Every structure is written in C-alpha cells, then in structure tokens.
Measured scan of single mutants.
Amino acid sequence: PDLGLTQLFADPNLIENLKKNPKTSEMMKDPQLVAKLIGYKQNPQAIGQDLFTDPRLMTIMATLMGVDL
C-alpha cells in the first residue's frame, strides 16, 4: 500500500502550492528536489527510500498533510 501518498502527490498544483508555502518555498528553488517531487506523481513508492536520505521530504510531507512540525 502507498499509505495515501498517491493522493498527496497527485495534486496538479503540488509544486506551485509548495512554492507559495513559507515552510517549503526555499526548498522549491532546488531543481533536483522539484524533479523528485514530479517523479513521485508517477511512482509514489519511490519516496519511501528518499525519506531516509533527504530530510526536506519529511517537511514537505508534513506540509502536504497539514501537520505543523
């Protein structure tokens, strides 16, 4: 199971919303991170391994779920 990750990354406004959010806007200036996020739309399971190697993803996930870290 993808634990709902498919829906989190399926939002067509995902990148724009993250660019507008004060907690994630600075991160979204990294083209490699943006490319990763776009890739998760097609393969949400890929985030599982990346969560352990890129701490920014935890902040992004929390933001998408509405959790304040």
Rank of each mutant, 00 (worst) to 15 (best):
P1C: 11
L33W: 04
D68V: 02
D11P: 03
E26W: 08
A10W: 09
N17I: 14
I15T: 02
P12A: 09
I38W: 05
L33D: 00
Y40D: 01
K41A: 15
Q7S: 11
G39A: 14
L64M: 07
I47K: 03
L3Q: 13
M27V: 05
P44D: 04
R56A: 06
P44I: 10
P44R: 03
D50S: 05
D54E: 05
V34S: 03
L5W: 14
E26P: 06
N43M: 04
M65I: 09
I60E: 00
D68N: 05
L37S: 00
M58G: 05
F52T: 08
Q7T: 12
S25C: 08
T24L: 10
V34Q: 05
D50L: 05
L14K: 01
G4F: 15
D30V: 02
F52E: 10
T6V: 14
Q7C: 10
T6I: 14
R56Q: 07
L51M: 14
M65N: 05
Q42E: 14
D50C: 05
A35V: 06
A46G: 10
K29N: 11
T59C: 08
D54R: 00
L14I: 10
S25T: 09
M28C: 03
Q7H: 13
L37K: 00
A10E: 11
K20N: 13
V34E: 06
G4K: 15
L51N: 04
P44A: 07
Q32V: 13
P22W: 05
V67H: 14
D68S: 03
F52A: 13
N21Y: 06
T6G: 14
P1V: 15
G48C: 11
T63S: 07
S25D: 03
G66V: 07
R56P: 02
D11S: 05
N21A: 04
Y40A: 04
D50V: 04
L57R: 00
L64K: 01
K23W: 10
K36A: 07
K36T: 08
K29A: 07
P44H: 07
A62N: 11
Q45E: 15
T24N: 01
Q42R: 08
P44W: 09
D2K: 12
I15L: 09
D30L: 01
T53H: 10
G66I: 07
L51Y: 08
P12W: 04
N43R: 05
L8S: 04
I15D: 00
L33P: 00
I38T: 08
L33H: 00
L51V: 12
M58Y: 14
L14F: 08
I15H: 02
K20S: 14
T24M: 03
L33F: 11
P55W: 12
L5I: 13
A46F: 10
D68I: 02
T63A: 15
L18W: 01
Q45I: 10
L57G: 01
M65K: 09
G48E: 15
L64D: 00
V67P: 11
Q45T: 12
Q49V: 14
A46D: 12
T63R: 03
Q7D: 10
T59I: 13
L51Q: 07
T53K: 14
Q49S: 10
D30W: 01
S25F: 06
P31M: 08
P31E: 10
Y40R: 01
A46C: 08
L3W: 15
A10V: 07
L18D: 00
L37A: 00
L18S: 00
Q42S: 14
P22V: 05
T59L: 15
G39K: 15
P55A: 11
F9W: 10
T6C: 11
D30T: 01
V34G: 01
T6Q: 15
T53F: 11
Q49E: 14
G48W: 15
M58Q: 08
A62G: 10
N21R: 03
K29V: 04
A62C: 10
P55S: 10
D68L: 02
L5D: 04
L37H: 00
I47C: 05
G4A: 14
Q45P: 06
Q49C: 10
I15W: 05
Q7I: 12
D30H: 02
A62M: 14
A35Y: 06
T59Y: 15
T6F: 12
A10T: 12
A46Y: 09
M61D: 00
A62E: 14
K29Y: 04
G39N: 14
Q45S: 14
A35F: 06
V67T: 12
I47L: 15
L8H: 06
P31D: 09
P44Q: 05
P55N: 08
N17T: 14
P12N: 07
A10G: 10
L57P: 00
I47A: 09
K36Y: 05
M61L: 14
K23N: 11
A62Q: 12
M65Y: 08
G4V: 15
F9T: 02
G66F: 07
I38R: 10
F52I: 13
D50Q: 05
T53S: 14
T63Q: 08
M61I: 15
T53R: 12
L18Q: 00
D2E: 13
M27I: 10
